[in-house]
Simulated assay, not measured.
Amino acid sequence: MATQTGVLKFTGRLGNLIGYRVGGEYYLRSMPQRVRQSPRSKISGRCFGKASKLGAAIRHALEGIMDTASESTLGNRLNRALLGVLRQDDLHGMKRFIPRHFRALEGFCFTPHAELGRLLTVAPVVTRDGNGNIEVAVPAMEALNGHPQATHISIKALAVCIRPGYTAATAEQSEPVLLEMGKSSEAFTLTVPASPDAVSCVILEVTSLQEEHGRMYMLRNRKYAAAEVIAVLPPMVEHRGAVTYSRDEAQARRYRQPMPYLPGMIIHSPQRE
């Protein structure tokens, strides 16, 4: 490993050399002549590829609609969280994303310097309506926590809809609700349009604002801005009796249906390997 000391520094491949950056320093190394991978390392590499591709899709979907500033560590932290979702799959040799396993993302914080529980003193309730839209019910609050110089706090909900195939994602947001500091707030509901056939990660975002001459300015202090996944909703499928089930639940119910018995019938049940 060599340090780049020239005026022009680079990252990436240049001939047989690879430049990379660690912190504020630039380093250089040569490409290996041959890379040998075991079957396990190949599986790990493919899993990382799946996680990083979905992680990039989620981050790109949130660009422009999330008010909190993006953290430099977000990409790596989100990729690790998605790898944890993949590793919960114990049915396939090559790990796959399973809708119900995305619940492991609940509690993931996009802002590591401020937790949502520090700014929001109540627990929101997340549900879907009949059209698949997401409703976030925020109970009444006696006191509001925010920046010491803030005159208002803004609360809004976002939904990242992970499309079937788990390589693409879209994001929608609710209208923000402004609450005045120093006053109690009544209960309210945030509505986010969402796709009923997608896994939806619901994010609640709280930011601090200051009013000056009738205009609102966001206070850019990362200790008083939080964005956290508060719920993950599985995709909806229609079912008799107006009851909705996720795809996994519907498949499980189909397999649990009792098989009709006929006299003299012999049933062979091959064991799972």
Rank of each mutant, 00 (worst) to 15 (best):
M141P: 03
L28N: 04
K156L: 15
P263T: 06
P234K: 00
Y255W: 10
G165Y: 03
E106T: 00
E212N: 06
R253C: 04
E71Q: 08
N79H: 09
P99D: 12
G117F: 14
L54D: 02
R100L: 12
S154A: 13
R36P: 03
L74I: 14
A143S: 14
R21D: 02
P32F: 07
L91P: 10
R21E: 07
E238H: 04
Q173F: 12
L8V: 09
S208F: 10
E172G: 04
L91E: 15
F102C: 15
L262H: 05
R77Q: 07
Q210D: 11
L190N: 12
N16V: 00
F110P: 01
T11R: 02
G130N: 11
M181L: 07
P193F: 08
F102M: 15
F188C: 09
S154Y: 12
V206T: 06
A187D: 06
T73D: 11
A140N: 05
L54K: 06
G165M: 04
P139A: 14
L233C: 05
S44G: 01
T127D: 06
I58R: 02
A157I: 15
M94Y: 09
E25L: 06
E115M: 11
M94N: 13
L86G: 07
Q251D: 12
A2H: 05
L74Y: 06
V22K: 12
A2Q: 11
M94W: 09
E205A: 01
